[in-house]
Simulated scan of single mutants.
Amino acid sequence: MTTIEFANNGNTPFEKLIGHNVQILEKWNSLEENFFENTGLDSNLMEQVRRTLAFGNGCEYCMVKGGRPEFSDSDLKTSVAVSFAELFCKDHRSILKAHFDMFREFFSDKEISELCAFISFINASQKLGKIFNLTEEYQKNPVVRMEQLVLLKE
């Protein structure tokens, strides 16, 4: 059971949790759409970052949506983005100028800006999912179950 009741507004369980204020829901959804439709970032890179953050934030709803991150270590651009996302999730205060110097080896300033904004947005979304107790049972299209994720970890 979620920690607050679902609103009548929204299409997904997550949207129904923030749908108590229609204006916030609309702006939230608009921002999410912009991240996926108006970015120069690779969609697979963004998905691997989203998955990484899901596990760091403990959002079951988000974890079962795609499972664990899957990418090749030889994909350095995705590896750098995922590593940065992990660091951001664990302790954003430890991010230094040197991290951005490393970023510039793989990303333009525009891409860095988009990636950091995306990481911040997804991080906030998943933390909301976690505190509202949005568990796997609410995910309509899971690719994996939590019990499988626990077994994979062991």
Rank of each mutant, 00 (worst) to 15 (best):
T3W: 07
I4C: 13
I4E: 11
A7L: 02
N8D: 14
N8S: 07
N9R: 09
G10S: 12
G10P: 11
G10Q: 13
T12S: 04
T12E: 06
T12W: 12
P13E: 00
E15K: 13
K16S: 03
G19E: 05
G19D: 05
H20N: 04
N21P: 00
N21R: 12
I24C: 14
E26F: 11
E26K: 14
K27G: 11
K27H: 11
N29S: 10
N34S: 08
F35I: 05
N38S: 10
G40P: 07
D42N: 14
E47Q: 14
Q48H: 13
V49D: 08
R51Q: 15
R51H: 08
T52Y: 01
T52Q: 06
L53A: 01
A54R: 02
G58W: 01
C59K: 05
Y61W: 11
M63L: 04
K65R: 15
G66K: 03
R68I: 06
R68C: 02
E70W: 15
E70F: 15
D73T: 10
V80I: 14
A81C: 06
A81N: 13
S83E: 15
A85H: 01
F88N: 01
K90N: 00
K90A: 01
D91Y: 13
D91Q: 10
D91M: 10
L96K: 13
K97S: 12
H99W: 14
F100T: 01
F106K: 12
F107H: 04
K110F: 09
K110I: 06
K110C: 03
E111L: 09
E114V: 03
A117L: 12
I119N: 06
F121H: 14
I122K: 10
N123T: 07
N123I: 05
N123H: 08
S125L: 11
S125V: 13
F132C: 08
T135N: 00
E137Q: 15
P142W: 02
V143W: 02
E147K: 00
Q148A: 08
V150R: 01
L151C: 02
K153E: 07
K153I: 02
K153Q: 04
